[in-house]
Design a binder for these strands. Structure first.
Length: 391
DNA sequence: TCTGGGGTCCTAGGACCC
DNA sequence: TCTGGGGTCCTAGGACCC
């Protein structure tokens, strides 16, 4: 039996969500003028997280530096992101989608798939999708695109057609007319590098890719990726809509300096900050980590990453920080300016078994106490923030 | 104009074990 | 003494996604 999958994608999510809040507060609707959501605008290294349709029409794009966008449009309205509010908006639209089908997979904060196979027919799918889209607009105040297809890939490709506030179908029998004429870059998983490799070999459209023999494609991108691209270009994808939320496999944090830094004290301060953040996050989710990795980025954007295994999984900030410091001394000469420093942990477990050793480092007790106070402080900060938001 | 932050998966080489 | 083949783990790097 053919499947019916919807992909729901919020149009310019962060920008729309900020606009909803501002309109509720009686302010002008920033969706109607060139506007963007970004990090700290005074930081010259900030980039654009979301742009309004009028901004996009001027050529302003997501991931572009704010300074560049300001040159394009000096009157650009810039707003700071509000994560707590975004999470509320996300939950709101996911809830509505879940009412249409419980077989729902959240793909990111602003996208989800629902399996509608048991909830509508190919004939009624467009009308149902339109109802879903309109319900979100009426109840929550922002627009979405709904893509309909016989699998997740096609649904996702369809939701990317004309925006905003639109419903599109991409059934298997429409692949040839609606998908094959598109450029390879429009295919999911084809990024900049793969596009370059494909076009260098004369493969320009998704249709070219679909008709390409596996032998030559494997030579270009490797066997595994070639298999996937070949399937996807032909509109095939049998992955199910995963309803269970997967646990994180890694947690990381990074800091990009407003100017490249070379003073080891500055670098260490940043490493300390990210270690606090990462360790706090894993404690909050009751994780312990067995792998610590540290990475640095130079001004030419090259990245060096070092990792190591711990004898025992840990969630102690000081233990993670010490490993990261050691890795930093291995990776960095202490002189060359750095653009960014980051820290990650992986091999996460919920295993709380701890080898009790009579010879356990007595410092660990102090470290744990420090972490406990840190966590309490963070929680207090969060409570205060929530209170301020309400009043 | 000068490029954030947070993730996932894949590959390839080397070490080590049987 | 020399050789091979398979499996697993680790590491570093790269590509992609939102």
């Amino acid at each position: 039996m053919p499947r019916i999958i919807f992909h729901i994608d919020v149009n310019s999510a962060f920008l729309s969500w900020s606009a909803v809040k501002m309109v509720q507060a009686g302010e002008a609707d920033i969706r109607l003028v060139p506007s963007v959501v970004s990090g700290e605008p005074s930081d010259r290294r900030s980039i654009i997280t979301a742009a309004s349709m009028p901004a996009k029409k001027l050529g302003i794009k997501t991931a572009q530096p704010v300074s560049m966008a300001l040159r394009t449009c000096p009157s650009l309205v810039i707003v700071r992101g509000d994560w707590t509010w975004y999470k509320q908006c996300s939950e709101g639209f996911i809830d509505i989608c879940r009412h249409y089908s419980p077989v729902l997979q959240q793909f990111s904060i602003d996208e989800c798939f629902i399996d509608m196979s048991d909830c509508c027919t190919p004939e009624t799918a467009v009308a149902v999708a339109a109802r879903l889209k309109d319900e979100i607009k009426t109840r929550l105040g922002f627009t979405v695109n709904v893509g309909i297809g016989s699998n997740k890939l096609l649904a996702k490709m369809a939701s990317d057609f004309e925006k905003p506030d639109k419903v599109h179908t991409l059934w298997s029998d429409e692949v040839e007319t609606k998908m094959w004429p598109l450029g390879v870059r429009d295919l999911l998983w084809v990024g900049k590098k793969t596009e370059e490799r494909l076009t260098a070999n004369g493969i320009r459209t998704i249709g070219d890719l679909a008709r390409l023999g596996m032998g030559s494609l494997t030579q270009m991108v490797g066997r595994k990726f070639a298999e996937q691209l070949h399937e996807n270009a032909n509109g095939r994808d049998d992955s199910p809509v995963h309803t269970e939320t997967e646990e994180a496999k890694s947690v990381s944090a990074e800091r990009t300096f407003s100017q490249d830094l070379s003073d080891p004290r500055d670098i260490d301060r940043a490493l300390f900050n990210v270690a606090c953040i990462v360790a706090h996050r894993i404690r909050r989710h009751h994780f312990r980590a067995s792998t610590v990795s540290m990475f640095i980025k130079y001004k030419d954007f090259s990245v060096v990453q070092k990792q190591c295994q711990l004898e025992q999984p840990t969630d102690i900030t000081a233990v993670i920080l010490n490993e990261a410091r050691r890795l930093l001394t291995e990776a960095w000469d202490g002189v060359t300016p750095l653009r960014q420093v980051g820290l990650g942990v992986s091999k996460l477990t919920h295993d709380y078994y701890e080898q009790m050793s009579l010879f356990e480092d007595p410092k660990l007790g102090f470290y744990r106490e420090w972490d406990r106070k840190y966590d309490a402080q963070r929680e207090e900060d969060a409570r205060l923030q929530a209170y301020e938001r309400k009043s």
